[in-house]
Structures are given as C-alpha cells and as structure tokens.
Write a protein that binds this DNA or RNA. Structure first.
Lengths: 336, 336
DNA sequence: CTGAAAGCGCTAACAG
DNA sequence: CTGTTAGCGCTTTCAG
C-alpha cells in the first residue's frame, strides 16, 4: 500500500502538504497549481488510497457504524432481516458510512458485540431488539456503552437511548381497521400466545369497539405460537361448525398463508367469503394466489430512521424517541 | 475511553508494561505477580478496553473482513441474502472477526466498496457475484485489489482469485436425477431464458440422457424470466392438452410454488400425478402445502467455505478454486 | 522484571 | 505557499 510519504517523496514535498492538497484542507491559503497537479498526478499514478485506520486514529471518527441484529430477526423467512439490513446499508452508503454487522441474541453475545464495537472501530451503534430477548439486561449493557446508541424496539428500553418504536397495539388495530374497511363484520383473531399477541389483541379489540363491535371470545383462536401447521386443524374444526365469522387476522404471513391454503382447499373463496390479513408484509405475500394483504411493521422505514437518528446523535444533537405506525398493504386477500 | 496510559498512570508503571501484561506478551520473562494483579485490577476498574484502531494501525491486521454482496442477491424473497449473511456472520464470529457489509451491483458501486475496504479497515474481501453483473469488469477491479479476495460465483472469474463455485449444469442434473429417482418418466423443464437456464438445461438433458431418456423440445417451456405470473397460463394450456409429462423442474421456488398452486386448483394431485422440484431451497419451501422439494445451491455452506478460504489466503497459504455440488432437498412435492 | 523509544499513517497546529 | 512538529493509542524491540 502506498502511503502519503511515498507520494511526498516521489513529488519532492512534505507529507503534510500532500495530505492537505488531497483532502482539500488548505484553509484560506492554497498550493501552487503546478504543485497541486503534480501531487494529484503522482497520487493517482502510485495508486494511493488513504489509510482509513490511521485517519480514524487521529480524527476519532470512523465513518462506520455497528448494527446489532438479533439472529432470526422476525419469524424465519419473514424477510425482515434482509429488509432491515438492505435498508440500513442503503442509507449508510448514501451517507458514505461503512456498516459493521453483528448478530446476537443473548446478553453474552451482546457483550461480545459491544466489546468488538466500543473501542474504536465505529462511531455509533444501532441495536435492533426483539421481544424474545432479555431486554432489561440488554438495555443495561447498551446504556453502559460510551458510544451513541439507538435502539429499534417496540417501545423505548431506556430513557437515555433514543428508540424507533412501533406499538404492537397499533398493529392489531391496523389489522382490525383494514378488515372492517374491507367489509368484514366478524373477524377472527389468531392468537400466537405471547406478549406481542396480547398487545395486538388489545389493539384489535379496541378498533372493533370503536366501530361498535365486540370481539367474541370464540373469535380468538389460541395457536400457542407461530407454527403454520397448528392452524389447519383448528381452522377445519371451525369450518365444520356453521362459520359465524368472515375474516382472519394472522400474526404472521406464513400463518395467513396457511389459512389461505386451507380455506381454498375447502372450496371457500378468498376474499369473497373470508378475508385474510397477514402480518409483516414479507416476500411471501407476493407469491400467493391471491396475493396476501398484510400489515407492515415499516421495518425498512424504521431502519432508515434509526440510522438518521444515530447520525444526529453522533453529531451531538439531542434526540428523543420516535414511533412509527404500521401500515396496511392491501392485496388480494381483502376486498376493496 | 480509558487508554493504556491511563491505566499505567494509575498503577504507577509504564504503558508498555501494561500492554504486555494485558496481552500476555511477556515473552520468556514475566512480571511480578503483585504487579500483574494490580494492572489487571486497575484495568478492570477503569473499564479499559483496547482501542482496536490503534492496534490495527501498528499490527497491520484488523480482525475484520469485508463482504460484498449484490443487492437483490438471488431472486427477491429467495432468502438467499439472509442465508448467506447469517452463515458468514456465524463463521466470522467463531473466528473472532468482524464483518463489514457492502452491497453493490454495478462496477461503479464495486469501486466505491473497494475504496472503502482497501485502505486499512479489513484484512480481506469476500465478493459474492451474480450472473446479471458485468463480471469481466468486476473481476478486473477485484484483481487489482491489494487485499486478499475470494469470490463466490458459479465459476472462477479469474485464475488469481480463489472461487467457491457451483456449476449450474449440476443444478440441472440434480433436479433431473431427483425427479427420475422419484419415479418421474417425462419431466418438463421450465426455462427462465437466461444464461443460467441454458447451463441448467444442459445438465438436465444430460442427466436424462444418462438414464436413456431424451428431453423432448415440447417439454421445455420457455417463460422468459422468473415471474411466477408467467407460468399459470402456460401451464393451463398444457393441461388442456392430454399431458404427456409427469414432473416439473422450476428455476426458482416461487415458480415451483406457482405451478403447485395452479395444479392443485385444477384438482391435480401433487406429487401423486405431477411432481415438482424448485430451485434455491428458500424459506418459501417450508410454507407450502405440501412442502416444496427443491435443489439447494448450498449457499450457507459455500459462504462458510468462502470465509475459511479467505482466512487461509490472509494467512498467506496458497489456495485454489473449490466447487460445491448442489443438493436435492426432498419434501412433499416429490414421491419417495 | 521494567521502562524508554521508535513508529504504524495520518492530521492539525504552528512556523517559516 | 510549504515544511516541521507533535501526537492519536498501541506494540515491539532494546536497554537497563
């Protein structure tokens, strides 16, 4: 690797002059045009590229940020991780920043990631968190980092760490509103039986209530998780009885898809007879026939906002929490 | 951030001693146990973490590698990018290395990525390439990099850059063998009409020939691309005639899925009457009913091998090209 | 057993 | 207009 002093020696001037010319840091003075030309030419000829490490050491800025992502972010195959990563990468590229990616799940793994990032390789950290993790523990560790940290989690994990949030209550109400707007009168709520589901359920219920409807207990189907295989038996049982419901809100796209397949096999037309709304708006939505309507958690937008927020934090501005609202993406499994 | 000299001052010794003790680089001598204890204790108390940048500057090693990934790696939603990224990340974490991720597509974007990586932030580069890219141009740029580079592409892009390959011819023959082994006698080949498809077709044809069968021209359906919507009309037309085929090899999972949905809607049983094999073995395969059999490009394994190869290259070993063979993942759309 | 000194490649005063 | 100097934080001889 050719260095500044290589260029300087070749040109016959000092390294600092080369540095100043190459970086355009001549202040209010300037170099002889002849000199400038020669430096530029020589630097190019020698294939000089500045050593980012050396620069970072002296300037204390790295033009790089670390992103901590939970392994298996989102349901497997949801495409959430890919969506988040590519949105982040795009945003960073636009800012001329580099991306250091670290996967983690447990507090120990976060500690490793922090040890990698803290010292002096990045300017800040964007940490994506998930319900299944040990949030208090993770939050404590992140708070202790000397680096600026922004989190991406449903709600703020700490007053001091700006968070880009998304209320699961809103996800539930978004699904309900979408179904009602599409003409549903009695939707069923598929319950994945976790904390997320609880909040979504409350949103779902509230939205129905706003329209003067109530969610009957028998219209909450508890599935005990996100396994698409758990749905068909439950669904078939419900179909054997005289269905008194006309819509289905699923906690994931694969579950929605599972419902779609089972219904169509039974000869039930979607969305004419039953309407379906998934959650996450992942790539799967585009592959089904009809294509799956879904509630998007706005992951790409949240990621981008996370990066922007982090930049401002790094720049020393004081920034607060943000919360995005989920968005309904209408496709073929809901009527228009 | 507390530095070595902070610790040294507190302890009352020199920074170099602290460094040696903390890194276990005392050579054949050693420090007074009392001193060692005190240094360790103080370093811990002050929350000292070594500055990776400073270390990298002096040692010339960064414990980080760059991964260049094509935007939209694989068909959208194929999950290939996620599979590749997480396999790489896992491998690197095990090696205690950091991952710098860069997306690119065009030669210009590669140039940017190289400019970011070359100077002094990473020890090597793993470049994933794709048929749709301007390979000769990209190869030239990668060759010019002073850093060790390993490529992940179907075939080697340059004699000098170790490649972890996968022959599309093998993908075709893998699909054919799988179908024949499952009892197919006359499979149809879905042609996505690109260079990849050509090679797969030749493999498909060769494998049939090995079994004494020939692929009739009317059993090659040209789709002009990977759009799943293009298949149903073609398929329905074929079903109107008396089908003289009993299997379908699709160039992607979504296309295979499209076939599956259309067939079942027409009341045709899969895999009893028609068998289907997809390509990529993406997450979609697990969501369909029945689940989709697919030919895996071994992306996770290839990525891991890519990292290992790069490590050896960085270590100064001379390494050659490798080629993995695709693997058939049997699920519900083929008979056993 | 411990410390002083040199230097990785670059930048930012400060002098000329 | 250009060069000298002094570090950024760490590691590595080389002397004590």
């Amino acid at each position: 690797m050719t260095s500044l002093s290589d260029v300087a020696r070749e040109v016959g001037c000092s390294a600092s002059l080369v540095s100043k010319v190459l970086r355009g840091r001549m202040g209010k003075s300037s170099a002889r045009p002849e000199m400038v030309r020669k430096i530029l030419e020589t630097a190019h000829r020698l294939g000089y590229t500045p050593n980012a490490t050396a620069r970072a050491l002296v300037r204390g800025r790295h033009n790089a940020i670390a992103v901590f992502l939970p392994r298996w972010h989102g349901q497997p195959g949801s495409g959430l991780d890919a969506a988040v990563i590519s949105a982040i990468a795009e945003e960073l590229t636009a800012l001329g920043q580099r991306l250091m990616l670290q996967f983690f799940l447990t507090p120990d793994e976060l500690a490793d990631a922090l040890a990698n990032a803290n010292p002096g390789t990045v300017d800040g950290i964007l940490a994506v968190l998930q319900q299944t993790q040990d949030i208090p523990n993770l939050a404590r560790q992140l708070e202790a980092s000397p680096l600026p940290v922004v989190t991406l989690y449903d709600e703020p994990v700490s007053a001091r760490l700006p968070n880009i949030g998304l209320d699961q209550h809103d996800v539930g109400s978004c699904a309900a509103h979408a179904l009602l707007a599409a003409g549903c009168t009695a939707p069923v709520f598929l319950d994945s039986s976790d904390a997320i589901s609880q909040r979504r359920l409350s949103g779902f219920r509230d939205a129905l209530a706003e329209s003067g409807r109530t969610l009957r207990p028998e219209h909450i189907w508890s599935l005990g998780g996100y396994d698409p295989a758990a749905l068909p038996p439950r669904l078939l049982r419900a179909l054997d009885a005289q269905p008194d419901w006309d819509g289905l809100a699923a906690p994931s796209d694969p579950l929605a898809f599972s419902a779609l397949q089972t219904l169509r096999e039974r000869g039930i037309r979607v969305p004419e007879q039953i309407q379906i709304v998934g959650t996450d708006d992942g790539p799967l939505c585009g592959y089904t026939q009809p294509m799956l309507s879904s509630v998007s958690g706005q992951d790409a937008a949240r990621s981008r906002l996370g990066i922007q927020t982090l930049q401002r934090l790094i720049a020393g501005e004081s920034v607060g929490h943000t919360r995005l609202t989920p968005q309904f993406i209408a496709r073929g499994t809901t009527r228009t």
